[in-house]
Structure formats: C-alpha cells, structure tokens
Measured scan of single mutants.
Amino acid sequence: MKGKVVSYLAAKKYGFIQGDDGESYFLHFSELLDKKDEGKLVKGSMVHFDPTPTPKGLAAKAISLPLE
C-alpha cells in the first residue's frame, strides 16, 4: 500500500503514516527495509508498506521509500 508520513519522531524511532485507504498506521524504524532511508522519513514523504493489524491497532510493516 502507498501512504504519506504524517509524523516521525527520530529520537524515539516511531511515527505515523496515513494510508491511501485513509487509515492511520504506526510506523517504527525497525520496519524500514533500508535503514539509510531514515533521514527521508519526514512529514509528507511518500512510502510503500504492508498494512498489518496488531493487537494495538494498525501497523506499517516492510516500509520502503519510492525510487527517486
């Protein structure tokens, strides 16, 4: 699924993505496929991810940034 980063707290390594389906997904650095892309996780960045339901809500897994 595609989505847009709505927040990312680099110090805490987490944030949120708004998916194309309108839902909010929890984003964690550990799910970023290329850790070098962390600096690109800023508000408004477009990402691809696997939407995954968890006991705490919806989460983004296997997060990647589109090729530039």
Rank of each mutant, 00 (worst) to 15 (best):
K2G: 11
K2Q: 11
K2T: 14
G3E: 01
G3C: 03
K4Q: 10
K4A: 08
K4D: 03
K4E: 08
V5I: 12
V5G: 00
V6L: 13
V6K: 13
V6G: 05
V6D: 05
S7G: 07
S7L: 14
S7K: 14
S7R: 12
S7F: 15
Y8V: 07
Y8L: 09
L9A: 13
L9S: 15
L9D: 15
A10D: 05
A10Q: 11
A10W: 10
A11C: 11
A11I: 12
A11P: 09
K12F: 11
K12M: 10
K13N: 05
K13R: 12
Y14R: 05
Y14P: 01
Y14G: 03
G15D: 00
G15P: 00
G15M: 02
F16E: 05
I17L: 05
I17A: 05
Q18G: 04
G19W: 03
G19A: 05
G19H: 01
G19C: 02
G19P: 00
G19M: 02
D20V: 10
D20Q: 10
D20Y: 09
D20N: 09
D20A: 10
D21P: 00
D21V: 02
D21T: 04
D21M: 03
G22Q: 05
E23P: 03
E23V: 10
E23G: 07
E23D: 06
E23N: 15
S24H: 11
S24A: 09
S24K: 15
S24D: 06
S24G: 06
S24L: 15
Y25T: 01
Y25L: 01
Y25E: 00
Y25V: 02
F26S: 03
F26G: 01
F26I: 06
L27C: 03
L27Y: 09
H28C: 08
H28N: 06
F29W: 12
F29A: 11
F29K: 06
F29Q: 07
S30E: 09
S30P: 03
S30M: 11
S30F: 09
E31N: 11
E31W: 06
E31F: 10
E31M: 07
L32Y: 02
L32S: 02
L33S: 06
L33R: 09
L33N: 08
L33Y: 05
L33G: 04
L33D: 04
K35D: 06
K35T: 08
K36Y: 08
K36P: 04
D37E: 07
D37V: 09
D37N: 08
E38R: 05
E38M: 06
E38V: 10
G39E: 13
G39N: 13
G39P: 14
K40D: 04
K40E: 05
L41N: 01
V42T: 11
V42S: 08
K43I: 10
K43A: 12
K43S: 10
S45D: 03
S45V: 15
S45E: 08
M46Q: 10
M46E: 12
M46H: 11
V47I: 07
H48R: 12
H48Q: 13
F49W: 00
F49D: 00
D50N: 14
P51G: 09
P51N: 04
P51Q: 04
P51L: 04
T52G: 08
T52V: 14
T52L: 13
T52R: 11
P53N: 13
P53I: 14
P53C: 13
T54C: 08
T54Q: 06
T54W: 05
P55R: 10
P55M: 08
P55Y: 10
K56Q: 11
G57V: 03
G57E: 02
G57F: 04
L58H: 07
L58N: 08
L58S: 06
L58I: 05
A59K: 14
A59I: 15
A60F: 01
A60Q: 01
K61D: 03
K61C: 11
A62G: 11
A62C: 12
A62Q: 11
A62P: 02
I63F: 01
S64V: 11
S64L: 09
L65T: 07
L65C: 10
P66I: 15
P66Q: 14
L67F: 13
L67M: 12
L67A: 12
E68R: 06
E68M: 13
E68Y: 13
